[in-house]
């Protein structure tokens, strides 16, 4: 008889995986900031940061160190607890989504098969969606607790933008779910491995999803919550030191995770498209490592497109943003959904 019936190895294994994924998210986010500045430099015909280490490779460390050592200011009139909670929530919600993403092909050993995924739950996609819908709170709470009207306006803008763009995002997702017939992320990947990547069948759905992901990550052309020239600095105006760092960093982690979600949903995840790699007969852990690399390459390409768009397209006006979301993307996503449903039904007959 045991007093405490807990599968310790299971918990330990998952904890290690979670730690690895969080570490990975931080690492990728760090170097996305560098990539952003480098790409911005190239697009503007200059070098970008190149002083810290070779090719500026230590620049993110320098940036992080600078943020840590800056003076920490909490405004007197702010709501202290919520002021601190805001950036924390932003960070947590940006990290949570990565739990349902399958990062690599499962590793088979003598004792069993270990999926490289924290939670392969039935509700995979819906968990992504629910975290996206909860992600508003970090911005709203931070903006309100700062007790600054510019912060509040920016926070309200950000929240209404995120709420508006969730709808077309969900509608675009439904078409993917139709095709797969399952909400499980692992099944979506294996379905694409068999039938070809979803992007081929759902190009419009992908474009809608991509636009919504830009809006959800508050990236240009949808970075209205941070519109410097109208709202000073946006919802994190009163923040300094690493609390500001958390907000900025959460945005990059959001980018990384949403790139991972898009790679998984539309580009076959860790699977190599158009190649039957199972026929190579490699050992499963090598296969797993290769598939992880493939996923990272896909993510890197999507991240590059994010950055490319930021330095190419100017910001929308707020009414244009709302028009695009409600009057263009939602009808488009609905049409896309109906057409895919009709085609699926027709093909089944």
């Amino acid at each position: 008889m045991h007093l405490l019936v807990i599968d310790l190895w299971f918990i330990l294994g998952k904890a290690t995986l979670i730690a690895c994924i969080i570490g990975l998210s931080f690492f990728v986010a760090m170097y996305t900031t560098l990539a952003e500045r480098k790409v911005a430099g190239w697009l503007q015909d200059r070098h970008g940061p190149n002083r810290a280490g070779p090719f500026g490779i230590f620049q993110p460390l320098a940036d992080g160190g600078k943020l840590f050592f800056k003076e920490e200011i909490i405004p007197l009139a702010s709501n202290k607890f919520l002021f601190l909670l805001g950036p924390g929530l932003a960070m947590v919600t940006s990290l949570v989504t990565s739990t349902v993403i399958p990062w690599a092909a499962p590793v088979t050993t003598a004792t069993g098969t270990f999926p490289v995924q924290v939670a392969d739950v039935d509700m995979g996609i819906l968990i992504v969606f629910s975290v996206v819908s909860v992600g508003v709170y970090g911005i709203m709470i931070g903006g309100w607790a700062s007790n600054n009207k510019f912060s509040l306006i920016a926070a309200i803008r950000g929240a209404s933008q995120m709420v508006s763009y969730e709808l077309p995002m969900g509608l675009a997702l439904i078409a993917v779910i139709f095709m797969t017939g399952s909400l499980k992320m692992s099944e979506i990947v294996s379905h694409q491995a068999e039938h070809g990547i979803n992007f081929l069948y759902q190009p419009l759905g992908f474009i809608i999803f991509f636009i919504c992901a830009l809006a959800e990550c508050n990236r240009t052309p949808f970075d209205l919550p941070e519109a410097e020239n109208e709202l000073n600095f946006g919802y994190h105006q009163e923040y300094s030191s690493m609390k500001l760092g958390f907000y900025l960093f959460a945005e990059y982690i959001n980018m990384f995770v949403s790139a991972a979600v898009m790679a998984t949903l539309y580009f076959g995840g860790y699977d190599i498209p158009f190649v039957n790699e199972a026929s190579w007969g490699l050992e499963s852990w090598i296969m797993s490592a290769i598939s992880f690399g493939i996923l990272m390459i896909k993510i890197a390409v999507i991240l590059f497109v994010f950055i490319w768009i930021r330095w190419t397209i100017p910001r929308f006006r707020y009414d244009q943003l709302m028009n695009l979301g409600w009057k263009k993307l939602i009808p488009l996503a609905l049409i896309n959904m109906i057409i895919s449903a009709a085609v699926m039904l027709w093909l089944k007959k």
Partner: peptide
Amino acid sequence: LAIVNIIVYAGAIMVLFLF
């Protein structure tokens, strides 16, 4: 039910309340 509770109540309705 759990996920819909979070998406609809925690994620949408409560945001409007906060607004």
